[in-house]
Nucleic acid binder design. Structure first.
Length: 511
RNA sequence: GGUCCGUUCGUCUAGGGGUUAGGACACCAGAUUUUCAUUCUGGUAACACGGGUUCGAUUCCCGUACGGACUACCA
């Protein structure tokens, strides 16, 4: 078997779509599994869609996801340059070869003429209004014009494109690793533009030429490319490269949560989840799209989730490290049908990965959040907070967002809890408890518990009846981590202060 | 419209000529917990439809329906 060389070939038109990340991931998994090479090629042949910063963004995003590039833009390699805009002469050469061998031709039709042709065919009730073996004879191209005319047109600077001369009737087959044999009649393929008016190649030509030159063994890309794959096969054939043609792998699409169509940025916005790995700021509109990283997703979790979207190991294992994915991955177990995007599952993975971290690692997350709020917190306290919070969070930022009460006394109290649990008994216990705590020199969970037990016993009130009132007075909420530990963390003084405040503030309501 | 691709619980999926059609997420219930969460236990829930082939089809074949992709001098 030839060496595995795969490429991820995005175009720098904006943020890297999550579907692109999965495509890159599958490429990477195959490469690593076979000690192959992962190549990053930038397909920037459309100058009108070029977005500044997109290339750097893509590189950074892949890096964050743990997808390492062995060769290509940003790292270099034996087949440089890896940016298609810098390979123009190469494509021109092969386009010329195709023309010389009669497999391509010049076309001078203006956009208006092309539009008119389509309208004409549509009006005539023709099913496929294409530039093909039939219609090309009615257009202005080097097949219908004399050699002299063509030369004159080119010499006089008339804009032209180079089109592939697709054979009239031929069966084109390709063996896709996921889908098996796919067959299409050449009559269904139109004479695709290979070289555009600006001298740049289109995707079709550039892609085939580069894949051949870069000795790509597997073309792994989204299913949206399947319809044009036969065209690419034709190109390999015409260029004389059919023996070296890469294997095709067309991945199922990632669908919108409702299943109607492929996932787009629009849907992500609509459902409120990120679409890009990292936060992306559109340089033109200035629109900021928060990415997975900043939304609190761990790269390992996102990768794991993405890997399972369309692929399964055939076992019940769900959690996979990158190493394990490399080991277990196989296109045999990639589904044919598209997979709907389910952010809830992504969250579950994130929770799993977050929990697998040590307390010390989690402390770092908490400290980061606190730093952003300009709050300082000693390590011992941070560690205690993290320890009692760790089983309740899905995102690192939640240590702070759900634990603000560790740093600030509540100013409002949960209405539901107040109306149900704030009563005379609670007030009695809380004031006695507060006095008891005020006497204590130091407060830890055990002494807090002992004090509470003593107070409730003395007053003859079941502790269960007042726990929530105590909690709400300390944190403002009806739920949360272990109360005794909370008291230990915030300290005796703070406990007293907070209970006092609650008793005062809530007095009115009871009365 | 045309071409191509697809279709198992709500979602991701396993399976495969005879199974109680399995797992995970989500959801619901019970247990534990001072609360919420966690954890544990249990539960609801699927083979798109119609014809074949067959003793038997969810599984194989053919249609139909539905869904998707593509149909640019975009990738």
């Amino acid at each position: 078997m030839r060496p595995v060389r795969v490429r991820f070939a995005p175009s720098p038109t904006g943020g890297l779509h999550i579907g692109g990340v999965r495509t890159a991931l599958y490429n990477y998994l195959l490469a690593r599994q076979h000690q192959g090479t992962m190549i990053l090629r930038i397909e920037d042949t459309d100058q009108t869609r070029f977005v500044p910063g997109a290339e750097e963004y893509i590189i950074e995003s892949l890096k964050w996801a743990g997808i390492k590039i062995d060769e290509g833009v940003g790292v270099g390699g034996p087949h440089a340059p890896y940016r298609q805009s810098e390979r123009k002469p190469i494509y021109q050469k092969y386009a010329q070869q195709l023309i010389d061998e009669g497999n391509a031709y010049y076309a001078f039709d203006t956009p208006e003429e092309l539009e008119a042709m389509r309208e004409r065919l549509k009006a005539a009730g023709v099913d496929n209004y294409q530039y093909n073996s039939v219609t090309r004879m009615q257009m202005r191209n080097s097949l219908t014009l004399s050699e002299g005319e063509v030369k004159n047109l080119i010499a006089s600077g008339t804009p032209y494109v180079i089109r592939l001369k697709v054979p009239k009737k031929e069966e084109i087959r390709l063996n896709d690793i996921i889908r098996g044999w796919v067959m299409v009649y050449s009559s269904q393929i139109d004479d695709k533009v290979l070289m555009k008016g600006d001298g740049m190649p289109t995707y079709h030509l550039a892609n085939v030429v580069d894949d051949y030159l870069m000795k790509i063994s597997h073309v792994i890309r989204g299913e949206e490319w399947l319809p044009s794959a036969p065209l690419h096969v034709l190109l390999y054939r015409f260029l004389g490269w059919e023996q070296d043609m890469p294997q095709f792998v067309h991945l199922p699409l990632i669908l919108k949560p409702d299943g109607n169509g492929k996932l787009s940025k629009r849907d992500a916005d609509k459902y409120g989840f990120p679409i890009f790995p990292r936060t992306w700021t559109d340089p033109v509109s200035g629109t900021v799209s928060v990415g997975y990283k900043d939304a609190g997703y761990l790269p390992e979790a996102l990768v794991n989730f993405l890997a399972l979207l369309g692929w399964n190991p055939g076992t019940t294992q769900e959690i996979f490290s990158m190493e394990q994915l490399i080991e277990a991955f196989s296109f045999d177990r990639v589904n044919k049908a598209g997979a709907r995007f389910d952010i809830q599952k992504a969250q579950w993975f994130n929770q799993q990965y977050l929990r697998a971290k040590s307390d010390d690692e989690l402390v770092v997350y908490l400290q980061e959040s606190l730093k952003g709020e300009n709050i300082s917190c000693d390590e011992a306290k941070a560690k205690k907070i993290v320890t009692i919070m760790r089983d309740r969070v899905t995102f690192p930022g939640e240590f702070w967002s759900q634990g603000k009460f560790f740093f600030f006394a509540p100013t409002t109290f949960d209405e539901g809890v107040i109306s149900k649990k704030w009563n005379d008994e609670a007030v009695k216990v809380l004031s006695a408890f507060k006095d008891e705590i005020a006497k204590a020199a130091t407060l830890d969970a055990a002494t807090a518990k002992a004090a509470l037990e003593q107070v409730t016993a003395t007053l003859g009130i079941g502790s269960g009846k007042i726990m929530q009132a105590l909690r709400v007075s300390l944190t403002g909420a009806g739920g949360g981590p272990d109360l005794m530990m909370i008291m230990e963390i915030i300290g005796a003084q703070e406990v007293v202060k907070r209970i006092q405040y609650a008793l005062q503030t809530l007095k009115v309501k009871v009365a």
